[in-house]
Design a protein around this nucleic acid. Structure first.
Length: 156
DNA sequence: GCCAACGTTGGC
DNA sequence: GCCAACGTTGGC
């Protein structure tokens, strides 16, 4: 099993929104970055676990855990001219952008803030914390996963 | 709201 | 293929 971190602005879609969704599941649409696309299309597998990160929030941080329940498939919002993430270069025959489905597993008892992540010695190498890192879908090592679950007081 | 950092676009 | 201009992300 692999571990990931996915970002969302909570004012747009929060972890609570995922928990409230039908079957606690949603499709993770709107990623328009090639590196993140490759992760969604090729690397994320059913059963993989993801931290759900609130970006542009007060405070930003990890709100909970979700699980990949459907592997990469074309992001249909790219085909819709009325969608804010519309991309005319992507077509159903030759899709540019991909998404996965994720399901909420559990909320953290408290949000683990970005400041708390930065303060943890074991997390210095996290992709999330590297200067200039803006990826919205990024890998988390097993050690980082377990460190953060311990901070949150939940089982890994 | 500011702005640093980054990715993409397009002229040449 | 270079690189300036532009748009976006996201912390602060």
């Amino acid at each position: 099993m692999s571990y990931w971190l996915i970002k969302s602005e909570p004012e747009v879609f929060s972890f609570a929104d995922l928990q409230a969704a039908a079957r606690k599941t949603t499709y993770w649409d709107g990623v328009r970055n090639y590196q993140a696309r490759n992760t969604l299309r090729d690397a994320m597998k059913k059963g993989d676990r993801c931290f759900f990160y609130h970006s542009n929030a007060e405070p930003s941080g990890i709100a909970g855990i979700c699980e990949v329940v459907r592997e990469g498939y074309p992001d249909h919002t790219a085909f819709d001219p009325k969608d804010p993430h519309y991309d005319p270069k992507s077509t159903p025959d030759a899709p540019t952008w991909y998404m996965v489905d994720v399901k909420a597993v559990r909320a953290f008892p408290r949000l683990i803030s970005l400041a708390e992540l930065r303060a943890a010695r074991a997390l210095q190498g996290m992709v999330l914390l590297q200067k200039g890192s803006r990826l919205s879908v990024l890998p988390v090592s097993r050690r980082e996963w377990e460190t953060i679950c311990a901070l949150a007081g939940v089982a890994g």
